[in-house]
């Protein structure tokens, strides 16, 4: 097995497992940059996975064919935003503790998703879907020597959408008036308010966007990786996305990089037994490698990460 073969095995796999994390982490960036902690990413992603699985299943029944995953992505985004509105209402309007509200959201989403699954399908899981997002080569780009084979062949379209969305989020946050408002509300809401920015409205938008993106992340996970929804479909991916966002220092491209890194590490641990110089290492070391590397990277290379200044504090007009 040549070095190229190894790369061809790992890199596409890494991009595939990174995509759901990228979407969800970007959602986290929107919410936390506006000053609202979102521990609820896990629950939002979970409910997105449930919504995705159900929509794809019924989409197939209705004869939507291979369009059904794409329909499900839109539905999952809408449902995710709706679910996130509970978090927004509690933590922005009612000034509840944002961490508490996020944890409650996780429990709510997990309970409701399985409850509804049992109600609708009379079973602990949704039926396995047949219309997954299919793997494809990107025209032209996959013909580029070396790079084409590694990055543009045999991969899910959703992965490229994820990377594209990361750049869009970066553009929105750093190059548009809305992005400036969102960031200012997260850093210094009172100053923003003085300048005539509606703090409550901007924070609502931030949280709803995070719900939509996390829902999308969950649906993409179902459509590309798991194929159905069970109680163990989403166990911790949302927390990983949260970690990717913090690892990426609350920056969209940082979050993208961190999510890709997690994906790469995961791909190595899954296909490590096929790779010559990794074969002899006990499997457990490959399994824990992504997490150990993350900790080491944070301690040694990346250094301290500063959260948005107003993160976690509800804004009260006129309070000094």
């Amino acid at each position: 097995m040549s070095f190229m073969d190894i790369l061809a095995l790992i890199i596409p796999a890494a991009i595939v497992s990174a995509a759901p994390l990228i979407f969800t982490a970007l959602g986290g960036v929107f919410s936390e940059r506006s000053g609202v902690v979102n521990i609820g990413l896990e629950g939002l992603m979970l409910f997105g996975a449930f919504t995705g699985a159900v929509t794809i299943y019924y989409g197939e029944q209705l004869g939507l064919g291979d369009a059904s995953p794409w329909v499900s992505f839109i539905v999952a985004m809408i449902v995710g935003a709706m679910l996130a509105s509970i978090h927004a209402l509690a933590s922005i309007t009612l000034k509840a503790d944002q961490v508490v509200s996020g944890v409650a959201l996780n429990f709510l989403a997990a309970g409701l998703a399985i409850f509804l699954t049992k109600k609708i399908f009379n079973a602990g899981q949704t039926p396995v879907i047949s219309e997954r997002i299919s793997k494809s080569n990107i025209p032209f780009l996959s013909d580029i020597p070396i790079i084409g084979k590694l990055f543009f062949s045999n991969a899910y379209l959703t992965s490229y959408v994820a990377v594209g969305v990361a750049f869009i989020v970066w553009y929105v946050l750093y190059k548009t008036p809305f992005g400036l408002r969102l960031r200012s509300v997260g850093e210094h809401p009172m100053a923003a308010d003085t300048m005539g920015i509606n703090v409550t409205k901007v924070r609502y938008i931030g949280v709803l966007l995070s719900g939509a993106l996390a829902g999308l992340g969950g649906a993409v996970y179902v459509a590309s990786i798991s194929g159905n929804f069970t109680h163990s479909t989403i166990t911790g991916q949302g927390f990983m996305a949260l970690a990717a966002m913090i690892f990426g220092k609350w920056h969209p491209l940082g979050a993208l990089g961190a999510a890709l890194f997690f994906g790469l590490a995961q791909a190595i641990s899954i296909s490590g037994s096929h790779i010559p110089f990794l074969q002899d290492i006990p499997k457990v070391f490959l399994l824990i490698a992504p997490y150990v590397l993350t900790i080491l990277a944070l301690a040694g290379l990346v250094g301290r990460a500063d959260a948005p200044k107003a993160l976690g504090t509800p804004y009260e007009k006129g309070k000094r």
């Binding site: 509840a96 503790d97 409650a104 997990a110 409701l112 399985i114 409850f115």
Partner: peptide
């Protein structure tokens, strides 16, 4: 009734406890 309903109820209780801070205030 599926056992998961209890998870929903617990989540709702936490929400209400969290939102009660406005009552305190």
């Amino acid at each position: 009734v599926p056992t998961e309903l209890v998870g929903v109820v617990i989540a709702l209780i936490i929400f209400f406890v969290a939102c009660s801070y406005i009552v305190h205030w």
